[in-house]
Simulated assay, not measured.
Amino acid sequence: MRIAKTIGMVMIGSLLVSCKGDGTLLDLYPREPIVNPDVRTLIQGNRIVYAQLDGRSQIRGITDGGRFTTYNRFKSFGFDPYSWQGEQGVTGFGEGLVVQAMPEGASFVLRYSSDMGVTWVSYDTPIVDDDDIVLGAVHVVQLLVGADGSVWLLAQQNIGMDRRMLLYHVDLWEEKSVLLLRRDKAIALTADFANHDDGWLLYSDQDGETKGVHVLKTVNGGQVWSAGATLGNLNQPSIEAIADDRLLVYPQTGQALLSADGGDSFTPVSIGDNGISICHAASPDVVYALLVNGVAKSIDGGQTWLRLDAQAYDVDISGMAMDFYNERQGIVYDWNKLFITDDGGASWDILIYPYDYLLE
């Protein structure tokens, strides 16, 4: 049985002021705790999997051990324990929706949750046609969840020594799916959509007949795809769709590339020296980049970038993911820490961090 509980911050300042000397509470706690000590529930023997900023002070998310919700930046928070099972397949997160594609035989099955993984609904209608499965196994490379609940599945099929790229669109509520794209001898890399209609995907040729990474684009939700630019060799590239005609392609290492004409041409842009972990478009103008060792920001749709002085209490702002509610308010988080800004990254607060006084 799950037991939901609300955890509040205990004010211990007056107690600590009265303690002096080595080996006292002052050695374990700062005079005023920077974060609520009770957030240890989320990171001690546990880890943050996903977090979303839903308003100025409301944050909800998932850990390995359950879901959490706070309406006051973790001064208090609710925690509903359960066992997260997201490692079984490919997971996509949307607005109040979590979707998973899990391997099953030579294909995969979908399930989705509207309560952060507490309960799941199975999508029972087969997505891959039986005639296609006979040719070779199909596995999901990437799962995208749109703001309207639309689901796109970028998949790869192995047919003997050959590869085939597939793209499906799934309507969870109507239990309908359609194969939008099939391309032989293509290796699927990544995809992203700016909205329900405008999207892009990247692929490379199986045999290397044309070197580099190829861009495909659609303006009608994937019904028709046309060729865009061919880029150089990129190390694990990702796409951030900024607007209906603007996208950023960024590799794990190397220089990012910006297109302002829907993917027909790209211009190199300098974001960070040591690699880009993830980019997030807060609006068509304001884009953030989480670097290996910092945070960068663009206010002109990705054309020029400024490295932010991102620190809080002498702690560098870093993490594996970010989420912005608007141009100014956003969070950066990792499995054991979470930071928030209210002024577009000019200053930051620490809401979760593995301080010694939390974990002892």
Rank of each mutant, 00 (worst) to 15 (best):
S238I: 07
Y82V: 08
S270G: 03
T267W: 02
V121R: 09
L358Y: 01
Q329Y: 09
P37A: 10
V213D: 00
D124N: 14
I317K: 11
Y203G: 00
N46D: 13
G208V: 00
W173L: 15
A310L: 10
A346W: 08
D334F: 11
T24D: 06
E360M: 11
I340F: 10
S318L: 09
G263A: 09
V332W: 07
D22R: 14
T6G: 11
I242V: 08
R73M: 12
T24C: 15
L143R: 05
R56M: 13
V145M: 04
D245E: 08
L97P: 00
Y333V: 09
Q156K: 11
D300T: 00
A256N: 05
V332N: 10
E32H: 13
D244S: 12
S270F: 07
I340P: 02
I352N: 05
I34M: 06
D22C: 07
S283A: 05
L97F: 12
H280Y: 15
V128P: 04
G275F: 05
I239E: 03
G160Q: 13
A229L: 07
L166A: 04
L144F: 07
Y288I: 09
S298E: 00
D130A: 14
C279I: 10
I276V: 13
L257Y: 01
D342A: 12
S114G: 11
A194P: 09
T267R: 09
D245A: 03
V128S: 01
G228P: 00
G45E: 10
A4M: 08
I276M: 06
